[in-house]
Design a protein around this nucleic acid. Sequence first.
DNA 1: TTAATTGCAAATGTTTTGCATTGGA
DNA 2: TCCAATGCAAAACATTTGCAATTAA
Lengths: 153, 153
Amino acid sequence: MEIKINNVKEQLHSAGFKLTPQREVTLKILLENKNSHLSAEDVFLRVKEEYPEIGLATVYRTLELLSDLQILEKMNFGDGVSRYDFRKTGTKHFNHHLICVKCGKVQEVEDDLLSDVEKIIEHEYGFMVMDHRLTFHGVCRECQLKEDTNGTD
Amino acid sequence: MEIKINNVKEQLHSAGFKLTPQREVTLKILLENKNSHLSAEDVFLRVKEEYPEIGLATVYRTLELLSDLQILEKMNFGDGVSRYDFRKTGTKHFNHHLICVKCGKVQEVEDDLLSDVEKIIEHEYGFMVMDHRLTFHGVCRECQLKEDTNGTD
DNA sequence: TTAATTGCAAATGTTTTGCATTGGA
DNA sequence: TCCAATGCAAAACATTTGCAATTAA
């Protein structure tokens, strides 16, 4: 289930958009950093190394466009910046995220653990669920181990 | 399980802070708008009606302070603004929210539906869960009814 | 009295937009 | 060709901060 540039190119074209070199480099960077939850600024800096003339606004516009096309998922961990990653094909839902409060690492949970919860929401609250966002805050395995050896922060 | 001004006053004092009239009016507005998920701007406009000299920065500072003291819960629905509401006393977890994509209404779900999911996260991923955020996007009961009668948007 | 708090304005940081220019289809 | 797309700079946002003046305790 690989995401390919050609695949995206086709999606852009069929929606009436062009595949410019700027968009191609942006996609390349995103492919090279899958599951990294890059911010627009992050993407911009990396794209700039390969295509120094690019403007930040173009990166924003590209990320917005790809999110609209459901190619990317725009997410928000409450730190004031939007982050982007490929939307997993075949999953109708957003993945869950585990955010470590010690090291800041964000880990993906690909299983959909919420089907039972959604059933409750639909039955008890009459709410038709289309999507969800679930984030856990806590301490990741590595930081737990560090704490045990370390004692301190 | 009522939240009282005097209660908050005591919490402020014991932490070495003062209860200024600005803070008192801000608290009053928040009490009058429980479960409304007001933004700082929302709070500011309402406080201003009663205390026109107040500055926006003061509202931000008050909301931040009350969040630090765990009196308020600062939340984020991905629309670029932080929203605030009283943290339910006795609940260790954030509530869940149902956001209607039609009318924008935000409904609270007070049940904790995630204990099973958290167990899985702890066992399968070795992640020590401290807190979570869960938001559902979809269509609320009222908008579903409207759609049925209306046909259109 | 005096440290905390305020209002204001300026600064910050992220994201968006206007516009003349460029370039992919 | 010609409209979509770009780069730039300015604007638009939410939020924070510096500072002199004020005030609750």
